[in-house]
Design a protein around this nucleic acid. Sequence first.
DNA 1: GGTAGTGTGTAGTACATAGTACACATGCGA
DNA 2: TCGCATGTGTACTATGTACTACACACTACC
Lengths: 127, 127
Amino acid sequence: MRRTTGNRRAWAEFGGLLREARELRGTESREFSLRRVAQRIDVEPAYLSKIERGEVAPPSEEKIRALARELDQDPDVLLAVAGKVSEELREIIRRRPREFGELLRQLRNAPDHAILRIARQVRDGKW
Amino acid sequence: MRRTTGNRRAWAEFGGLLREARELRGTESREFSLRRVAQRIDVEPAYLSKIERGEVAPPSEEKIRALARELDQDPDVLLAVAGKVSEELREIIRRRPREFGELLRQLRNAPDHAILRIARQVRDGKW
DNA sequence: GGTAGTGTGTAGTACATAGTACACATGCGA
DNA sequence: TCGCATGTGTACTATGTACTACACACTACC
């Protein structure tokens, strides 16, 4: 395992978030030991341990999604903390790079509520 | 170079687009031979040759941007054909994954003009 | 007919990504 | 006290990404 020691801080943030979420659930249920969770998302316990301690980079999108399900987290947020953007969203952009490029750059500094309001308006057919 | 023969078709589309654009300019100017362009974007000629023939995967974002400048192409489009999304746009999404995730999914099937109209309205301060 | 420029074939490199496998020490309950 | 579960250290692997370096054949020009 290559360490590339320089993203360690970012990895630790992701790992810390996971551990916190897991330990929260672990206090009540015993189904949330590191080993149990590792088994359910289909990775080796040692690997999940290293992820949680930020010793290695965050895992693949697939595993991050599985973790989000297990620990009841927002997948998009977890992916973002891991430094990733979901393949689903990248696909949407790749299909119309000009349009979405333009839109995203215009909205870069818009307030959260403005972005969400637009999303709502689109959903309600107001476009 | 690992070939992973299965994305070859996608690579060829990217390469073909490059070659076409380059040869178009090459008919008039002689500054657009494969070797000259390769030198300007700082890669080996053999490498650019393989890229244009779709024998290897598209190069890094940096090189794709350089090619877009040289050949007067839209970088976002060239990146998209290469199967990539620019780091700039990914950054925008990672900062507010919930908001932009929601927005992009709502706009997935919206017509082009609707997306561009929203971008225009945002630019004009109508939000 | 040399030489300058053209595109391409072959081989190899360094680093990133995404993990596995096994052994070990510690602690907790019955 | 013994067995089982817990988290973790160490070593290793396969594949992907992004290239370089060099040699070769062809053509075009003067």
